[in-house]
Amino acid sequence: MESLEPPSAGNVDVRLVASSPEAARRVAEILRRCFASTEQRSYPVGTAPGGTRLHLTVDTDRAAEPARSWLVTSRSSGDGHRQTDEV
């Protein structure tokens, strides 16, 4: 089981689940254009062929535009609730 400990300050662990490795890589590439990040790690998921789970960590303290301006103006909802399908 994966640790549910939060990452270090300024970092966000991102978990993507996609129907194909290519779809997951496209989203990871967009995140890398906005934030410094670790190397992605991918794993097969589900019983359907091609399903992929991709993990990477992004550094929000080293954000590029447009993410930097979005982070400055965004605010947390503060409710702290998980969606029902979250692990």
Rank of each mutant, 00 (worst) to 15 (best):
D61S: 14
P6I: 03
R33S: 05
A64L: 09
L56F: 06
R62L: 08
R53I: 08
P66A: 09
E65T: 11
P7V: 05
V27I: 06
R75T: 09
V17T: 08
R25P: 09
G51N: 00
D13S: 12
V27T: 10
G78W: 00
V72Q: 14
G51W: 01
E29H: 01
L4T: 11
A63I: 04
S42L: 12
A23P: 01
L54G: 08
N11Q: 15
V27Y: 06
N11I: 08
E5D: 14
S77C: 09
T60H: 12
G51D: 00
R15T: 04
A9L: 03
T57K: 05
L16V: 07
D85H: 13
A24P: 11
D13F: 07
R68Y: 06
L31I: 04
V58R: 09
R33T: 07
M1G: 14
M1V: 11
S74F: 02
A48C: 02
G78D: 03
S20N: 01
T38G: 08
G10Q: 14
V17Q: 10
R68C: 10
G50R: 04
E29K: 01
P49D: 01
T73S: 15
D61A: 13
G80N: 15
G78L: 07
R26V: 13
P49L: 10
T47Q: 11
E2Y: 04
P44C: 00
S8R: 14
G50L: 03
A9Y: 07
S69F: 01
Q83N: 14
V45E: 06
T84K: 15
Q83A: 15
E5K: 11
S3Y: 01
R32I: 02
R75Q: 10
R33N: 12
A67S: 09
T84V: 11
A9M: 08
A9N: 12
S8E: 15
D13W: 06
E39V: 09
P21W: 00
R25N: 05
T73M: 11
S3R: 05
T60A: 12
V27F: 07
E39A: 13
G50P: 08
V58W: 11
Q83E: 15
L4F: 06
S76C: 14
L71W: 06
P7T: 04
R26F: 04
R25H: 08
C34D: 15
M1W: 06
V14N: 03
G10T: 02
S20R: 06
R82F: 07
R26Q: 13
R32W: 05
L71A: 05
A23V: 03
E39Q: 11
A23I: 06
E29Y: 03
E86I: 00
S20A: 03
D13P: 02
W70P: 13
A48S: 02
R82I: 00
E22T: 13
E29Q: 10
D59Y: 08
S8Q: 15
R68G: 07
S76L: 15
T47S: 04
P44Y: 02
R82M: 11
Y43T: 12
P49W: 01
R15A: 05
A63L: 01
T52A: 04
L16A: 08
R41G: 04
V27P: 07
R33Q: 06
D61C: 11
E86A: 15
R82W: 10
V17N: 02
D79L: 09
